[in-house]
């Protein structure tokens, strides 16, 4: 590939190769405070390439490839190159990560206590995680929480935080001076902007934490909280995991231990300030 960028996010090394310079320059800038892959050997490779040679220049379209791919993925315009790279990295994790049980959840940490927040797209996982970071929590990740089967510890995966539509403004207000990537307009999920996690979250990204609470936030309701029994929590987390089935018995044991040891709560919230105050109650 003509242009290459390599980075370590939490315990996972990536290299991204591209036919174009622009996405690589953007990645290198946004991830400039992150380390390189351990021993220079990435866990996964992502490729951004043109399906036909003329698509490099003529209405350039980015195909997302890599070690693991899904068939018939639609290309993106080059202006969404950053989004393509992020999707490619997420795809490798979702399809092929086998060292950790992967939960589709955002995660924050303070005093060694990690709080997992999971739910459907639109529940506010990423926004809440970013807002809690603004309140001094460590951001462990906005997309995947990594549970180590041997220990049950949560490992951090603090990639760029993908914020959508109005939440970009809300988080921008709360985090003055934060660094953002270029607007990624008119994506299938609306307008997206990527937020760089703060220095403390990046610096501590190799440190695992013990899970203290599992939250199922839901936006657009009067404030309410309800305990989620381990059985329900288990079923919801199997649905939130991309590799639960592939891990077989290890996945079952890991998830069983997690839902037995960690209390789970569904929280309904009408606005961001209320949500943050509710999450804060799980701090101790």
């Amino acid at each position: 590939m003509n242009h290459v960028f390599a980075v370590r996010i939490g315990p996972v090394g990536f290299r991204v190769g591209s036919d174009w310079r622009a996405p690589i320059d953007t990645l290198a800038d946004l991830y400039r405070d992150y380390p390189a892959p351990e021993d220079g050997i990435p866990d996964f490779s992502v490729r951004l390439f043109a399906r036909r040679p003329w698509r490099r220049v003529l209405r350039p379209q980015v195909m997302i490839g890599g070690d693991y791919t899904i068939p018939d993925a639609a290309p993106l315009p080059l202006s969404l190159g950053l989004l393509a790279a992020e999707m490619g990295m997420n795809l490798q994790m979702a399809l092929a990560q086998r060292r950790y049980l992967l939960l589709h959840a955002s995660c924050i940490e303070r005093d060694g206590r990690a709080i997992l927040m999971t739910g459907e797209s639109g529940a506010g996982k990423s926004t809440l995680a970013a807002l809690m970071m603004a309140r001094g929590w460590r951001l462990m990740g906005d997309e995947f929480a990594l549970v180590e089967p041997e220990t049950g510890l949560i490992y951090s995966f603090p990639r760029l935080v993908s914020l959508k539509n109005q939440s970009v403004g809300v988080v921008g207000e709360a985090l003055r001076g934060a660094r953002f990537g270029p607007w990624q307009r008119d994506t299938p999920k609306g307008d997206i902007r990527h937020l760089v996690p703060d220095g403390a979250s990046i610096a501590a990204m190799a440190e695992p934490a013990r899970a203290a609470a599992i939250l199922f936030p839901a936006y657009g309701h009067a404030p309410d909280r309800r305990e989620v029994a381990p059985g329900e929590c288990f079923v919801r987390l199997t649905q939130a995991s991309t590799n639960y089935v592939a891990l077989g018995e290890r996945g079952f044991d890991t998830l069983t231990r997690l839902v037995r040891d960690v209390p789970a709560t569904a929280i309904d919230y009408p606005d961001a300030a209320t949500a943050c105050a509710m999450v804060e109650e799980f701090a101790a």
Partner: peptide, 22 residues
């Protein structure tokens, strides 16, 4: 071998072990 390579290959062995069971 380098630790990063050893880890990737250990994961691959575990993964193949699970594939065998399936």
């Amino acid at each position: 071998m380098p630790a990063a390579a050893a880890r990737i290959l250990a994961d691959a062995r575990a993964s193949a072990g699970q594939g065998r069971i399936a």
